[in-house]
Structures are given as structure tokens and as C-alpha cells.
């Protein structure tokens, strides 16, 4: 573990830069802001296919994040992939095994998609096992995006539980790209143990850019005596970051109990429910409103989500087994 949260400290500034602004010259190790603006002619449209037919993508790179999680860079075999907004998802297909919705975590330098996949079932296991050069089917991107405009001029709290950071990563990069348009930006993140933290390097870079990044763990790994940060639920980090509740916008993604607790705590402190967005997960067979599996009350989360406004869904999340 190279990067860990130092409890209670303000974010570190990159030497020679003003804290809270994105430096003009991006250090070599920092990937370009997301999404990348591409020079040159407009992308050629991908070959027309039926909505349920995936396009073949090739695994360009595969980076294990931890024991059960890998980050894959995928690039289309033919044509270019459609632009994805922060928060949107694609349907990833492992031939012969199945297809699952997966948040887009970024774009590659060559215009592909970056996905961080955790092996939790047959399909995600098959996806995690894909090596560079192998084929994955991709449809999308689909769904709603984080509302970046709604947070302009406000303080921003980004709260992630575990791999909930995956769809938030492109959001944070976009916030950094438009840094001057927002007030204080804090990233609070909970993870099971220090060893299950993903994007550790990225979190360190965000600190370098002046974001207040705080990490808590459920259980400090007894084998890892190096953890000196907070222990407990991510909601406890709300106390550790500075924001003006009445002028704050929050983006939250993680397990549903974590999102409910975080949204409830933020609104208890005065953040308007309409200024909290969540990204809700359900299984999907189509991603396009045909299969019916991802319904949450009136919502079809493939079309009306995954990003939803807490003010509009709080009453739905309160119903058991909905």
C-alpha cells in the first residue's frame, strides 16, 4: 500500500502549484483529465448493429488492483466507441458466459473504455480473467450521468463505498478539469480493509491536485500494522471534511446501506436531498428498457439511473424488497 489517508490532514499541494487548482503541466504520472478531447476528424460511426448485439472490443491492458479486482482498458476492434459521460455504464459480455452492467471508470488515451471489475459472479470472474488481446463484447454506454452542472459554485462531497469509487472516478476527474467552477472538493471513501483499497495511486494524485481525500477502513488488517487512518463507516468521515451544508452537492456510490446512511447523514446536516446524487446497482439483461429486471418502483434504472437524485428516490429506498 503506497498511498494511505493521513488522518485529519489537509490535502497536500504539488510543489509549485496553487492548492485547489489543476496545474498547467500535468505530471507524467497523472493520466490526462477525463474525458479526453480528441483532436482530428469526427469519429467514424461504429458499424450499425441491433441494440442487443455487442461490439467486439479488445483488452488492451489489464491491471490487477487487488486479489479479486482488475482494471481493464478496452478498445473497439472496429470503429470508435461512443463518448461516455461520468456515471454512465456499459454492458460487458464474456462470450458464452454472460453480460453484466459495468460503470465506465475512464477513457483510455486511444479512445477506449476503462472498467474496474470485481469478480463476484460467473460473468465478472470471466471478465477479470481476460488477458490483453482477448475479446470482450461491449454495448452502450447507457444510463444517466452525474449532474456536474448542478454542483457549480458549490462545495462538493464525493462519497464512495468500496468499488463505488469506480463510477465516481470519471466524475472527480471532470471536477478537477473544471476545478475553478466548484468550491471545496472532498472525497471520502470507505473500504473493508487497507488491502481492499482500489485506485490508491489515483487518490494520492487527487490529493496533489488539492482535493481533501479521506479514507476509512472497516477493519484494519492485523497483518498490516501500517494503517494509521480512521476505522469505521464512511459516514464518520463526514466530520473530517469541510463543507457548507447549505451550499454543498454530494455524489455518493457504494453498497445501498452505505448510500442510505451517507445521504441521510448529509441531509441531516443540512444538505438538500435534491443536492445528493446516488448511483444505484441492479442486475440488467438489456440496459435499454426491454427486460424489466432493474426496476425500482417507477424507475427503470438502466434508463432512469444508475445515477438518481436522492430527493426523488429516498422514499423508494425506504421500502424493503422494492
Amino acid at each position: 500500500m503506497t498511498a494511505q489517508a493521513v488522518p485529519g490532514t489537509a490535502s497536500q499541494a504539488v510543489p509549485g502549484t496553487v492548492p485547489g487548482t489543476v496545474p498547467e503541466t500535468v505530471p507524467e504520472t497523472v493520466p490526462p483529465p477525463w474525458p479526453q478531447t480528441r483532436p482530428g476528424p469526427a469519429p467514424e460511426p461504429a458499424p450499425r448493429a441491433r441494440p442487443m448485439t455487442p461490439a467486439p472490443y479488445r483488452v488492451r491492458s489489464r491491471r490487477p488492483d487487488r486479489a479479486d479486482t482488475v482494471t481493464l482498458s478496452l478498445e473497439p476492434v472496429r470503429g470508435r466507441c461512443a463518448p461516455a459521460l461520468p456515471g454512465q455504464f456499459t454492458m460487458l459480455y464474456a462470450a458464452g458466459v454472460g453480460e453484466v452492467p459495468m460503470s465506465v471508470s475512464g477513457r483510455t488515451r486511444h479512445g477506449g473504455y476503462v472498467h474496474t471489475v470485481r469478480a463476484v459472479g460467473a460473468v465478472s470472474e470471466a471478465l477479470c480473467a481476460k488477458r490483453p488481446g482477448e475479446i470482450i463484447g461491449v454495448r452502450g454506454p447507457f444510463g444517466t450521468a452525474w449532474d456536474l452542472a448542478a454542483a457549480e459554485g458549490l462545495d462538493v462531497v464525493v462519497a464512495a463505498g468500496g468499488l463505488g469509487i469506480a463510477p465516481l472516478r470519471p466524475l472527480v476527474r471532470e471536477l478537477l478539469r473544471r476545478r475553478s467552477g466548484y468550491g471545496r472538493i472532498s472525497v471520502i471513501m470507505g473500504t473493508r480493509t487497507p488491502a481492499t483499497l482500489v485506485y490508491a495511486r489515483e487518490l494520492a494524485h487527487w490529493r496533489e491536485y488539492g482535493l481533501d481525500v479521506q479514507v476509512t477502513v472497516d477493519h484494519p488488517d492485523p497483518a498490516d500494522a501500517g494503517w494509521t487512518g480512521p476505522v469505521g463507516l464512511v459516514t464518520r468521515l463526514i466530520d473530517r471534511v469541510v463543507f457548507q451544508p447549505r451550499s454543498t452537492f454530494a455524489y455518493v456510490c457504494g453498497p445501498e446501506p452505505m448510500m442510505r446512511a451517507t445521504a441521510a447523514e448529509l441531509t441531516r446536516r443540512g444538505v438538500a436531498p435534491e443536492r445528493v446524487e446516488l448511483s444505484i446497482e441492479r442486475n440488467m439483461k438489456c440496459g435499454i428498457g426491454w427486460c424489466g429486471h432493474c426496476q425500482l418502483g417507477p424507475l427503470m434504472l438502466c434508463l432512469d439511473g444508475p445515477v438518481v437524485n436522492y430527493g426523488r428516490v429516498a422514499h423508494l429506498l425506504a421500502v424493503r424488497e422494492l
Binding site: 441491433r50 442487443m52 448485439t53 467486439p56 476492434v77 459480455y93 475479446i135 463484447g137
Partner: peptide, 11 residues
């Protein structure tokens, strides 16, 4: 819906 073999997709 479709068949896929390697990078070849048939509808």
C-alpha cells in the same frame, strides 16, 4: 440475439 466467435459477430 447473436452469435459471436472471436471478434466476429453474427446476427
Amino acid at each position: 440475439l447473436f452469435r459471436m466467435h472471436g471478434e466476429t459477430v453474427e446476427e
